[in-house]
Computed example of a mutant assay.
Amino acid sequence: MKAPTFHEGIKYSYRDYLQWDDEQSWEIIDGVPHNMAPAPSSKHQEVLGNVFALFHQYLKGKRCKVYIAPFEVRLSESGLDEETFNIVQPDLTVVCDRKKIDERGCNGTPDLIVEVLSPGMAAKRDKIVKFELYERFGVKEYWIVDPYHENVEVFLLEEGKFGNRQVYVKGDVFAVSLFGDLLIDLNAVFQEESFE
């Protein structure tokens, strides 16, 4: 294993990705490597943990499974390592087709993805680059969670495009479209735990 060196104009695949070992986390989008944000803030982790807990509790004993980062999602038409040019590590991933899960993560399109925003370029990547990627590969439901402004943007796939954006704020309760009886209480998501 070696630290990666990148050259402009070269499209990198999952096969290349498997050779990198520089103790950093990488994603590849359309063959272009992206160094992931530094370690997330405590606020990011608390909010992500709260969302994970709601899904984990609800999905116990059901066919869908929820996974928390780091968890690799490989998006490709062929499924072959050398032809997979999109590898992402969403903050939270829900997969209902167990055949897509292997020892390395998810090989195929998940049903629902949640990204929790971090400050800086990572937020732009979640809102633009990953938004377009998840739409193109047919993720049914995409959430962008803003832990600082305490809101959630929800996008549902309609005829191959993410349809009307729904925005929910702290105090709101909304149903997850994939599971009509799973209600998300944003007071629980954005609740701050005290050490007292």
Rank of each mutant, 00 (worst) to 15 (best):
V95M: 04
D102A: 13
S13A: 06
V66T: 03
P119C: 02
P90A: 00
K127Q: 14
F195K: 10
L178A: 06
L54Y: 08
Q45K: 02
Y168G: 11
I10H: 14
L75Y: 07
S41M: 06
F131W: 08
V154E: 05
V73A: 01
V88I: 03
V66A: 10
F155T: 14
G108K: 06
L54W: 10
V169T: 12
V73M: 03
G180D: 13
K124H: 14
A123V: 00
I10P: 12
D81T: 08
V154G: 02
E82S: 13
E77W: 14
G9F: 08
V176C: 13
P4W: 11
F174G: 05
L157T: 02
L183E: 10
R104H: 15
Q89V: 10
K2L: 11
K99S: 15
F190N: 02
F85Y: 03
G108M: 09
K130S: 06
V154W: 02
K127L: 07
L133Q: 11
Y168A: 11
E82C: 08
E82V: 06
F55V: 06
L75P: 00
Q24T: 12
P70E: 04
Y148R: 12
F162N: 07
D102Q: 06
L59F: 06
S78E: 04
E132W: 13
Q89G: 13
K62M: 06
L59I: 05
I184P: 15
V152Y: 08
G171H: 00
L75M: 11
L117G: 03
V176L: 07
T84N: 04
L182Q: 01
W20Y: 00
T5Q: 13
F195A: 13
H44Y: 04
P4Q: 05
S194H: 08
D16L: 04
E115K: 05
C64P: 01
Q191K: 15
K65I: 06
T84L: 03
F85H: 03
D126T: 04
N107T: 07
Y58G: 13
R74Q: 08
L182P: 12
K60M: 11
G9E: 08
Q166S: 12
